[in-house]
């Protein structure tokens, strides 16, 4: 079972999860998961993100620290630094920030 923040819902504060996080709504604060975090198209996340894996189709403002991979899908808009072992940026994704791949 995973956690879903659906479109229309806003969470202001800290989310800590041992499981998948699927964000379709708005999150402000801090986001931590031991598993996959998915920020869907239309979602707004203004938070620092820590996760095993991060997929972004929506808006992210904040730094992300990911142990495995980050995927910026077409339509993603990211402002912030990304630290991850692997990163993909799809054509059409907007990105402003530093990338740190531990090289």
């Amino acid at each position: 079972m995973s956690t879903i923040i659906a479109a229309g819902i806003t969470v202001e504060g800290e989310i800590v999860a041992d499981e998948d996080l699927q964000i379709g709504g708005t999150v402000r604060g801090k986001l931590t998961s031991k598993d996959v975090v998915a920020i869907e198209a239309g979602a707004v996340v203004e938070a620092d993100v820590q996760a095993a894996s991060l997929t972004i189709g929506g808006n992210l403002v904040g730094n992300s620290h990911v142990t495995e991979r980050v995927d910026l899908l077409a339509g993603a808009r990211v402002i912030g630094n990304v630290k991850a072992a692997r990163i993909t940026i799809a054509e059409g994704a907007q990105f402003k920030g530093n990338v740190d791949m531990d090289v």
């Binding site: 479109a7 806003t10 969470v11 504060g13 998948d20």
Partner: peptide, 23 residues
Amino acid sequence: MAESTVIGAGTRIRGRIHGDGDL
């Protein structure tokens, strides 16, 4: 609303939750 918001058993939230939809 196509899908509703779920706070899973392994998730902790410290902060406000508000908006339109089910929870």
